[in-house]
């Protein structure tokens, strides 16, 4: 069992994660999903760095991954604050809601025909109601003596 195949396969897996993250950040419009895609790209880079660390037999790649983790934590904190602020201003998590920030010579993103409702995606399983609903004294429920 030579380590070379594992190193190469680690590089391939890192490349796949990075490419998937790139597709996600290019295609998706939800801000949260875009940040998840950015984290996926960071994961791909981490896997590549650890593979190179294994290949070279030193700690350099693993050190870099530790700092990637640190920077990812900082980035997530600041980015999620921005996402919360953006949601507070527009009420949507849509990146296209901020397209007034685009360059003046770029065309506007227009949503063409959307499906009216995605009813089948919102079907969750429910328990059938059974028995008799007990009478609840609301005042008593609010003032409990023991919890």
């Amino acid at each position: 069992m030579t380590p070379a195949p594992l190193v190469l396969d680690g590089l391939v897996v890192g490349a796949m994660l990075f490419a998937l993250g790139l597709v996600g950040i290019l295609a998706r419009r939800n801000l949260i999903v875009m940040f998840l895609s950015a984290e996926l790209m960071l994961q791909g880079v981490s896997v590549s760095l650890v593979s190179w660390s294994r290949h070279h037999g030193d700690w350099g790649g693993q050190m870099l991954v530790i700092f990637v983790l640190t920077v990812a934590a900082c980035e997530a904190a600041v980015a999620l604050v921005f996402v919360l602020q953006a949601f507070a201003r527009t009420g949507r998590l849509d990146s296209a809601a901020w397209q007034s920030l685009r360059e003046s010579n770029l065309p506007r993103v227009v949503d063409h025909e959307l499906p009216a409702s995605d009813a089948e995606a919102l079907q969750f399983p429910r328990l059938t109601p059974a028995g008799v609903q007990p009478a609840v004294d609301e005042d008593e429920a609010l003032e409990r003596e023991h919890v």
């Binding site: 290019l26 295609a27 419009r29 939800n30 949507r92 993103v109 959307l114 995605d118």
Partner: peptide
């Protein structure tokens, strides 16, 4: 489900 979750950019 929001409408922007059901479409993609390109």
């Amino acid at each position: 489900m929001a409408s922007y979750d059901r479409v993609s950019n390109e």
